[in-house]
Structure formats: structure tokens, C-alpha cells
Design a protein around this nucleic acid. Sequence first.
DNA 1: TAGAAAAGGTCAATCAGATTGACCTAAAAT
DNA 2: ATTTTAGGTCAATCTGATTGACCTTTTCTA
Lengths: 137, 137
Amino acid sequence: MIDKKKLMVFYFAYQEINRIVDLSKYNLTSNQQKMLFSIDTIDEITIKQLLQILDISKQALNVACRDLRERNLVYTGPAKSDKRKKVVYLTDDGRKLIEKIEEEQLNFINAICNSTNYNWEDTMKKLTNSYLDDIKK
Amino acid sequence: MIDKKKLMVFYFAYQEINRIVDLSKYNLTSNQQKMLFSIDTIDEITIKQLLQILDISKQALNVACRDLRERNLVYTGPAKSDKRKKVVYLTDDGRKLIEKIEEEQLNFINAICNSTNYNWEDTMKKLTNSYLDDIKK
DNA sequence: TAGAAAAGGTCAATCAGATTGACCTAAAAT
DNA sequence: ATTTTAGGTCAATCTGATTGACCTTTTCTA
């Protein structure tokens, strides 16, 4: 695969995966969605780790996090190993929400993956071509 | 590959690819970078197509585009087929810039792709694991 | 054990980017 | 001849993000 295609893959795939989901429907900012995703993905995630992953300011993260807490989508507790650290967990509501979002995205991804047997090149070609056809017409 | 991993791939890969590049070094916004990339990728791209791809407002695009034009990174001209349409081209400077950015990103992608022989599953596992190791420690 | 460092939190001020809506031209389609 | 499409601009506004100062509590270390 030529280099150009590789980059296209990442840009357009990511774009499409996020375009499918209407975050305003759930009243989430894109950072909040990334937070929920990261909390769901990385066990016992701390505030520090979220800061590293999202790569945003402490203030931005805290505002977003406070909102999620107030809406009862996440809750926090001190880490056993180090009481300075705060671990963030999903509530049942939070888990339900992020899983619904992920499901929407996976429907799209799987439709492509399954038809190409997980071959990177084929998957990517298919993905970008269908995307570009849509744009070019 | 389990579903969860697939999503991780797209999120973390995209994140890493963009984290490598310091856009402020080039005085570009993330939308401007996407614009340069799209112009470089799609031949004879029009304003309308850029609007579709970036999925931003007309105003946002025009401000970004005007800036790129003033900095002599892109230029525009009417499409032959339809004079209403405006095609956006890279100048030599613009091409040099976006290719430099793409090179930085490809160094990262290729380091992973090459070591896994283009198998999607392996590549992705490798990519996300190295990312997570970094976060978890 | 005293003091430094790490993890987390908050406030106020500010800023950059983005949106919306109104309004415009020119070219193409009906 | 009229409507639509493609593009452009302005002013007003908004949201989200940043920065810097200043806290607390816990852990590390000289």
C-alpha cells in the first residue's frame, strides 16, 4: 500500500467513525465521549492518565469530569495503592451510554472488517474508496 | 479481534498520529492541516467537497482557507466544467509543508506496519499495546 | 522527620475557533 | 425568467480550552 493511502485510512476512518455518532443527542462533548471510552477501556484509570490520554488542560478535564459526575455517568474514588490518586469508574448509566455509542460505531467498522477478512490493505481500500466515492459524486 | 480492540485502534492510532506533529510549529490549526491533507489527497478538490469532508461551517472553512491563501500555501481557480465551483490547489510551499507533516506521521505508521507485515490485527495490537504501556506505567 | 514533590482541585480572565443568520454575486439548471 | 447551487462576507455570539495563581492531601526523599 502506498504511504498516501495509509494516512487516508486513519483520517477518513476516524472521521467516519465519529461522524456516525451524534454526540449532541447525548449531550456529550467530544472530550467527554473520549473520557467515557477511556474509562471503559482502561481499568482503574486515574485522573492523571486521563490527562495524558486526552492531552488537554487540567481545568478542561475537571470541568468535563465534574459534569459527568453530576449527571451520574461516572463516579470516583481514591486508589488503594496511593490515596493521592483518584480512580474514575463508570456508573451503570455511564456504561449503558458508552456501550450504546460504541455499538453504533462498531456496526460501521464490522461491516467493513467482516467483508475483508481483517486484511489491513483490503479493509482500508474499501473504507477509503467508499468514502471518496461519496465525496466525489 | 474483539470489538473493543477495534475501537481502541482507531482512537489511539489517530491520537498518536496527530500527537507526533506539532501544528503550532507551522502555525496551522487542525482544520487547516486537514484541509492541506485533503487538497493533497483529492485531485481537483472543490470548496464544497472540503465542506463535506471537514464537516464544518462555511464561515469556519472560509476563514481558514483565506488564511492559507494569504500565506501562499494554496491557490484557487474556477473549475472548467462549472464556473461556479472553485478548485483549490497546493502551491509549491503548501505541498512542501504538507509533505513534511505527512512524512513525520508516516515514520510512525511505517515503523509499526513494516514489523507486522500489513496484518491488521497484529498492527493494531502492537500499536495500542505500546500506547497503553506508556500510559499505564 | 521536615520539606519537596506529586496528584488533584478551583477560580478568574482570556482566547481561539466555531456557529448562526442575514445578505450578497455569479453561474447553472429548470 | 426564475430558481438553485456554489461561493463569499459580516457581525454577533458561544463553547470549549488555556493559563496562572493558589489551595489541600498524600507520598517520597534528603
